[in-house]
């Protein structure tokens, strides 16, 4: 055990480093005192106060709506992109395509945000759309970078799939589209769900892209929080921040849960198949052994 001593200690220190600030934030959101550093007893008044803050509530609803549409669009586009990357080995512009799928993962947000805004301005001059920047433009920006995340998640699942099932369906005369919807999609469904949850959480959290491409009147929750936070720590921001942490954690947990359940199901299916094979072999009373 001594061999892994150092790395285990680092793991727990790292976990403490990650979690302690968040725990402190959540505890202090229940602080009754208006002074954020003085403990004045437990209270939920900042949470209750949030409900009266109609500006904040409007931003919450707007953010949730954008996140929902982003999750849907990113899953569709990301799955198509992942399918292309894993199933179509050769076509013109494949390298470019691969680059465009993975580059958004690392591209600094200020660059993506600025460039998208300039695109929208240029498009408005040329074709008159988008006449006004707002939720649609934020949705486009979020979808673009979430697509990359979905593509990575889904393609890792697509690569593990047994191609022979799809091939068998094709041999039996199913059209490619039918194979995709009846065979491939159900098999990768958990990773689609995981990608959707991830996109939802990422969209809910984004500040920089939204600040660049949004227009007047389309303030999202992170923008609202940011402008308040700039002025320092405030008790009601503690409350909304704790709620955001909770929601984001919940969606990441769902994403994790879906992937894990799929893995378990697959392992069980393999095990079952092995057992049936062993039983059959035993029943047939031959000396043949399953190659397990």
């Amino acid at each position: 055990m001594k061999r892994f001593g150092f790395s285990n200690v680092m793991l727990w220190l790292g976990m403490l480093f990650i979690y302690v600030p968040m725990v402190i934030l959540v505890i202090y959101s229940f602080n009754a005192s208006r002074l954020v550093t003085v403990w004045g007893g437990w209270s939920v008044k900042w949470y209750v106060g949030l409900l009266d803050n109609s500006q904040l509530m409007g931003a919450v609803m707007r953010s949730l709506e954008i996140a929902l549409y982003t999750a849907i669009a990113a899953v569709v586009l990301g799955t198509l992109a992942a399918f292309v990357l894993t199933r179509i080995p050769r076509f013109r512009g494949r390298t470019l395509f691969g680059g465009m799928v993975t580059a958004p993962l690392v591209m600094p947000e200020v660059i993506t945000g600025l460039s998208l805004l300039l695109l929208f301005v240029a498009m408005a001059q040329l074709i008159g759309w988008p006449a006004e920047r707002g939720m649609t433009t934020i949705w486009i920006a979020h979808t673009t970078f979430c697509t990359a995340y979905v593509a990575v998640v889904v393609s890792s699942r697509l690569r593990e799939l047994d191609l022979s099932i799809e091939e068998a369906a094709m041999d039996l005369g199913a059209r490619p589209w039918k194979v995709f919807f009846l065979i491939t999609i159900p098999m990768i469904a958990p990773s689609l769900a995981a990608g959707a949850m991830m996109s939802f959480a990422l969209s809910l959290d984004d500040l920089v892209l939204a600040s660049f491409v949004s227009g007047p009147g389309a303030t999202t929750l992170p923008m609202e929080v940011f402008s308040a936070v700039r002025l320092g720590v405030k008790p009601d921001i503690n409350a909304i921040a704790s709620l955001i942490l909770l929601v984001v954690s919940f969606f990441t947990f769902l994403a994790w849960y879906f992937t894990r359940r799929a893995e378990e199901r697959r392992r069980r299916a393999i095990q079952q198949a092995m057992e049936t094979m062993a039983e059959e072999a035993a029943a047939s009373q031959t000396t043949w052994k399953p190659a397990a």
Binding site: P21, M22, I24, L202, D205, L207, P222, L245, T252
Partner: peptide, 10 residues
């Protein structure tokens, strides 16, 4: 993995 703004605020 997400909620960077909130964690910086913490």
């Amino acid at each position: 993995w997400t909620a960077i703004l909130i964690r910086v605020y913490a």
